[in-house]
Design a protein around this nucleic acid. Structure first.
Lengths: 213, 213
DNA sequence: TAGATTGTTAATCGATTAACAATC
DNA sequence: TAGATTGTTAATCGATTAACAATC
């Protein structure tokens, strides 16, 4: 079996290209070149072509790419040509924001449950959803075939929640708690840290001053 | 002038090390080795030592690192030994969540203003804060010396908000809208895309199936 | 001293970029 | 055909890792 190694940065960019193509498509633009995509998202044209080349030949030499087709291809590559049932555990402010975040729903993610074990939150409506007690997770996970779990609980509860998700058949975990979590190798898992990028900014501001001394 | 190039990945990890050290410190642990840090955050020991080596010699050979000291150094490196006045523009669900996100306040970020131009949001309380009309941004930015701006508005308004921030002396911008934004070179700017990592997960799940065909 | 762990160099690995033949 | 842009290879660049001397 030939094992194609695709850099994670390539997948990240693909996701960004794809969103850019959606915008072009909405604006009625039918053809786009690697240079225009590059310009639009802030990378080099060679990078755009190289990223796409991992997956096939999608363009026409001398012409460029058909926007609608390329959009379809990128969505398919990213696995967004299907619906993904997703659950959010933690119905605090962050969980609430994630439930209503349009960015999720637009891209094929279907939130089928929000869970919490705080009695003051259980039963609360968030859009179409009602906050469920955490004890119902196993049942709903099975019924709705939840494949992706989102952790939006405090750091102290994050590992426990991850364990419960894995035990109930979740295949991928997105963790918003700023802590390293252990899951079995076969589970896909990524952290989103809302504060790290802020700290990159403060580092750069401070660093710049230091260098000009 | 010797221009030290520090990889952005190093800064990201430094931020993670620093949070791990906080946890060790809270648990009363006084000494830690590169191996233990590595284990705790999921990187290699060599990586930990290399990352730290960009900035100085913080350990004792044969012994390891003093937790309190190393924590202090990492915070200083990241610029978190000072308070940063920060404003959030956009008081929707995401803006709301960011205002109340403990991860910000704990690390030296001080939210001095939340702004929106939606009349139904203006005047609303969020914790200690009251949502201000966007028109007051210039005044408050000057009074509070806002150096960091956080964009939590819809895609369509993001560029406009960024422009306004820059015009009013903001030095760094953190953008949560899933769109590329143009700012002058001297402005630090990063995007946080809540959906990209989710799409890396779906890519990996799909890709894995494809490879096992 | 023996054992442990750092700081640093050199080797390896991987990703980006430049360049150009292919081709519309 | 001339002009444009892709797909791909080779060169470059940069980051990670392995290894070990320094030293507690």
């Amino acid at each position: 079996m030939k094992t194609l190694r695709v850099p994670e940065a390539t997948v990240t960019r693909l996701s960004i290209y794809s969103r850019f193509l959606e915008r072009l498509d909405r604006n009625g633009i039918t053809t786009v070149s690697s240079g225009e995509i590059a310009e639009g998202v802030g990378v080099s044209p060679a990078q755009v072509r190289k990223d796409l080349a991992y997956f096939g030949e999608f363009g026409t030499r001398g012409v460029g790419y058909n926007v609608k087709d390329l959009l379809k291809y990128t969505l398919k590559i990213l696995g967004l040509d299907q619906e993904w049932a997703l659950a959010i555990v933690g119905a605090g402010n962050l969980g609430f924001a994630l439930c209503t975040y349009r960015g999720f729903n637009v891209r094929g993610f279907h939130i089928v449950g929000v869970f919490d074990n705080d009695p003051t939150r259980i039963g609360k409506r968030i859009g179409d959803l009602v906050v469920q007690p955490l004890t119902l997770f196993p049942e709903i996970a099975q019924k709705e075939n939840i494949r992706i779990g989102v952790i939006a609980v405090p750091t102290s509860a994050a590992q426990e929640v991850a364990d419960m998700m894995v035990k109930n058949g979740v295949e991928a975990v997105l963790n918003f708690a700023p802590v390293a979590i252990n899951v079995p190798d076969e589970i896909e898992m990524r952290n989103v840290d809302l504060s790290v990028k802020l700290e990159i900014l403060t580092f750069n501001l401070g660093f710049r001053n230091a260098q000009s001394l």
